[in-house]
Design a protein around this nucleic acid. Sequence first.
RNA 1: GGGCCUGUAGCUCAAUGGUUAGAGCAGAGCGCUCAUAACGCUUUGGUUGGGGGUUCGAGUCCCUCCGGGCCUACCA
Length: 571
Amino acid sequence: MARILITSAIPYINGIKHLGNLVGSQLPADLYARYARARGHEVMFLCATDEHGTPAELAAAKTGKPVEVYCAEMHQVQADLARGFRLSFDHFGRSSSPQNHRLTQYFAGRLAENGYIQEVTEKQVYSRADNRFLPDRYIEGTCPNCGYDKARGDQCENCTKQLDPTDLINPRSAISGSTDLEVRETKHLYLRQSLMRDELEAWIDSKTDWPVLTTSIAKKWLNDGDGLQDRGITRDLHWGIPVKKGDQDWPGMEGKVFYVWFDAPIEYIAAAAEWAEANGKSEADWRRWWRTDEGAADVRYVQFMGKDNVPFHTLSFPATIMGSRDPWKLVDYIKSFNYLNYDGGQFSTSQGRGVFMDQALAILPADYWRWWLLSHAPESSDSEFTWENFQQAVNKDLADVLGNFVSRVTKFCRSKFGEEVPAGGAWGEREQAVIEELGTRLTAYQAHMEAIEIRKAATELRAIWVAGNEYLQAAAPWAVYKDDPAAAAAIVRFALNLVPFYATLSAPFIPDASATMLEAMKMANADWPTDVTAALERLASGHAFAVPENLFRKISDEERAQWQADFAGQR
RNA sequence: GGGCCUGUAGCUCAAUGGUUAGAGCAGAGCGCUCAUAACGCUUUGGUUGGGGGUUCGAGUCCCUCCGGGCCUACCA
């Protein structure tokens, strides 16, 4: 039994996430967490909402609510949706929590003590009308290169030229449109990552088992241009964690807050502290997950995220931890994902394009989405959601292969032997062959799950379901029954035992259907099978069961067409 | 511009440099009748994006061209 710490990239607060966000971090993290628990490991699975930054302030302003209120409400919305998708977080925290305030300020203090913080005075664009400094991309104007009139201060979307806000002709605030802008001096803290470049590179180099996607992005940042650059970790904003050096004020930094990308990863740690408080645990209870000197030396820490998050998790956050010179737990494995596209284009939060978490659950139960998304996870390249593919895959895999198997075996038993596991007959060579096949496939399935090869694991699981149909077809108990009811009983007993077996193996992917299967078979729980023969003898003769409702209904062509139309436009 | 990823059957994807490039879905044929018109068996389908090279041997390595995508440090 191992101890596994799992974190999912924390979703930003400014709205409901789409299926691309879900499959890029939270869902695969949940799959792994559920599997690890099922195998008897001690798991701490953490996630949170990422609440600070300019977009949160603007989103709140749009609703007319104070940003604290807006974030609290949106956190609740996201928490409810997470529950709806059966994401089994041990704790779903908030980056605005008091715990994160303390830890973020603590880390900043430690970094300063160790010489990794530099104060830099720089010039930034200030909007008098908006009463705030503007991030580069919140300044719009005419591109000096191509004349496009909606170029942003960081880059022109039309000609892709990279810009400085001061390059723009007729600059204006993207928030209010105001042209009442001025350049002001302001002081910020920089994390001196460059001093830790070699240390970081050696650490990355030691991670030979990481996905190429993860290491190649890290390498690029380490070696690009002049190498790893220092990074500003403070902002002139109202909403955020006030800049402090531990619990001391930071002279000259009054009224400033830490940059979200500084405090967001620290929330991974703070979420454990929140977990402890919420569950009546002690400081030591959460620190044994995070401090290698306080019990975390044997912890394996796995992170899940989309590829856009990789630089922060491979470089900035490790630099924060290393630079503290405290024995905090560094990540052991990073599983990163490409993007899920929607019907020929990208999912887009700002444009409302695609299917969002609340809409998905309004249409179909979580298992449908979980199965499709996980079995099509964008592991090696971007993948694409289309309604045709979704309908086809869900109907075939869930309704026809798995659902119908459970249906045919339970109903056949009921009609011939009643709703209890029938006695009589014995298993023969055919059953032995199936047991051997299942043993081989179970081993492969476990290997894929442990390696977090999600699509391969899904393929193997599906093959395990198919084996049940193949067996029934070959054994044909409906034909055998006419001449030899006892032999038919043995076949049915074997097939019935596949149901809880499937329920256990499938639970990480489709937890609700798995629970339904176990309930129907009147199994309070089903341990992970270590021996297939033993696992298929758990339902003994005379064990009562109930024929369940169909596990999955099929998606009709009409529904598919309707949804296609419903989601074609903007949200 | 630079860097990285990617291109394999109609679709979604597999294949430590090593037999005849494999699965699922879709298509075709056959079988079964327990089951949600479900299931099973068989089967059609490939110049592995194009071209060149290295090698006894290339989907895999190198060069080049073409297409798709991502990142490029102040969105998060």
